[in-house]
C-alpha cells in the first residue's frame, strides 16, 4: 500500500508526464493540421489539365500583334467586320462603330437596339443584325433600309454577296437567305436526310458564316466541329474540321465560333473556351496559329465573380481586310487586336 502523500507525489510525476505527452501530442496535431491544411490534395487524375492544354509551341505562331489592343469603348461588343481598305466595324451597345485601320474611330452609327451581327458588302453597305431583323446603312451612316423582322431569331452573322444576303440564325440553327431588298429567299442547313444534311448544332450562341471566293457559302457548324460548304441553293458540298483539343482540331463542345476568309485563300477560325485563333488552308489543313491563350490574355476557366453575369465567358469574332491583317474582337474585354503576319 502506498502512503497517502506518496501516492500524491507519484501521481504528480505521472500527471506531469501525462500532461507532457498531451502537450506534445497536441502540438504535433496542430503542426500536422497546418501541413494538412495547405497540402492535402487529391491525385493528379482529379484535376483537369487545363494549363497544359493552353500551352502552344511558339514556332507555330505565325502572326504578331500590331500595337496595343484597341479599346472599342463599348460595354458589350458583339461582332466585327472589316472592309478591303482596312477599316473595321464593330457592332455593340446600340451602335456600329467604324474605325480606320490605325484604331481611330471614324464614326458611330446609332441603332435602336443591341446589334448581334454585322456584315459589310463589297458595295460598302453596312448590314446590322439586331437579333431578329436587319437594318442597312450606307458607309456614311445613313439608313438605307430596315427589313421586316423575322418572328423570333437570333442573327449572329451576316454575309452580303453581290445579289444575296445570308444571315446565320443561332436560335433556329439555320441560315436565312435574302435578296438585297430583304425578301426571304430560303433556308439553308436544316436537317434533311434526303440531301444528306445532318443539321447544324449550335449549343452556344455562336454561329458564323461567310461567302467564300469560290462562290459557295461557308457555314460554321460548331456542335459538329466543322466548317460546311453550301451552295446558295442549300446543297451541302463538303465539310472539313474535326474535334480535338490538339492544335489541329477544334476544341471543346462547340467550336469554331467565328470564321473569316483570307484574301489569298485560307480561313481564320476562332475558338472560345481555350481561346485560339488559327489559320487553315482551303482543304482544312492547319497552317498556323494567329494567337493563343497567352496572346489573348486568357484567364482561368473559372473566375470569381460577385455578379453571375460577370462570370459568363464570352467569345471572339474575327475579320480580315484586303492586306490579310486579322482583326480579332474580344467580346469579354471589348477590345480589338490586330494581327499581322510575322
Amino acid at each position: 500500500m502506498k502512503d497517502r502523500f506518496g501516492k500524491i507525489n507519484n501521481g504528480s510525476a505521472a500527471v506531469l508526464l501525462a500532461i507532457g505527452a498531451f502537450a506534445a501530442g497536441f502540438t504535433g496535431y496542430v503542426l500536422l493540421d497546418r501541413a494538412n491544411h495547405s497540402g492535402k490534395r487529391a491525385g493528379a487524375d482529379y484535376r483537369y489539365p487545363i494549363e497544359e492544354l493552353a500551352k502552344i509551341d511558339p514556332a507555330k505562331i505565325l502572326y504578331r500583334q500590331v500595337g496595343t489592343a484597341i479599346e472599342t469603348g463599348m460595354e458589350s461588343a458583339a461582332a466585327i467586320e472589316a472592309d478591303w481598305a482596312g477599316n473595321f466595324y464593330v457592332a455593340g451597345d446600340r451602335a456600329v462603330a467604324v474605325f480606320s485601320g490605325d484604331g481611330s474611330k471614324r464614326r458611330d452609327i446609332p441603332l435602336v437596339s443591341e446589334p448581334t451581327a454585322i456584315g459589310v458588302g463589297e458595295d460598302g453597305l453596312i448590314y446590322a443584325g439586331l437579333s431578329d431583323r436587319i437594318e442597312v446603312y450606307s458607309s456614311d451612316g445613313q439608313q438605307v433600309s430596315a427589313w421586316a423582322p423575322i418572328h423570333t431569331a437570333l442573327l449572329t452573322a451576316i454575309a452580303a454577296g453581290k445579289t444575296d444576303v445570308f444571315a446565320a440564325d443561332a436560335l433556329h440553327k439555320i441560315v436565312r437567305r435574302f435578296d438585297k431588298q430583304g425578301n426571304p429567299l430560303g433556308l439553308i442547313g436544316a436537317k434533311d436526310p434526303d440531301r444528306n444534311i445532318e443539321g447544324i448544332v449550335v449549343p452556344s450562341p455562336y454561329f458564323d458564316l461567310l461567302i467564300a471566293p469560290d462562290g459557295l457559302l461557308r457555314v460554321v457548324n460548331p456542335g459538329r466541329h466543322r466548317i460546311e460548304a453550301y451552295t446558295f441553293d442549300g446543297y451541302l458540298e463538303w465539310h472539313w474540321g474535326r474535334p480535338s483539343v490538339g492544335l489541329e482540331g477544334f476544341s471543346g463542345c462547340c467550336n469554331p465560333i467565328a470564321l473569316a476568309a483570307l484574301p489569298k485563300g485560307g480561313y481564320v477560325t476562332c475558338e472560345k473556351g481555350l481561346v485560339r485563333v488559327k489559320v487553315y488552308d482551303e482543304e482544312g489543313n492547319l497552317v498556323g496559329v494567329v494567337a493563343g491563350p497567352d496572346q489573348l490574355g486568357w484567364q482561368e476557366p473559372l473566375r470569381v465573380c460577385e455578379k453571375p453575369e460577370d462570370c459568363i465567358s464570352r467569345g471572339l469574332d474575327a475579320a480580315v481586310d484586303g492586306q490579310g491583317r486579322i482583326y480579332v474582337l474580344d467580346q469579354s474585354k471589348n477590345v480589338v487586336r490586330i494581327f499581322e503576319k510575322k
Binding site: Y46, R47, Y48, I50, P203, S204, S251, G252, C253, C254, N255, K272, G273, L274, P301, L302, S313
Partner: peptide, 11 residues
C-alpha cells in the same frame, strides 16, 4: 474535374 471541363469549353 468535370466542372472545370464544362466551364472551360461549355455552358
Amino acid at each position: 474535374k468535370c466542372v472545370v471541363g464544362c466551364s472551360a469549353f461549355g455552358n
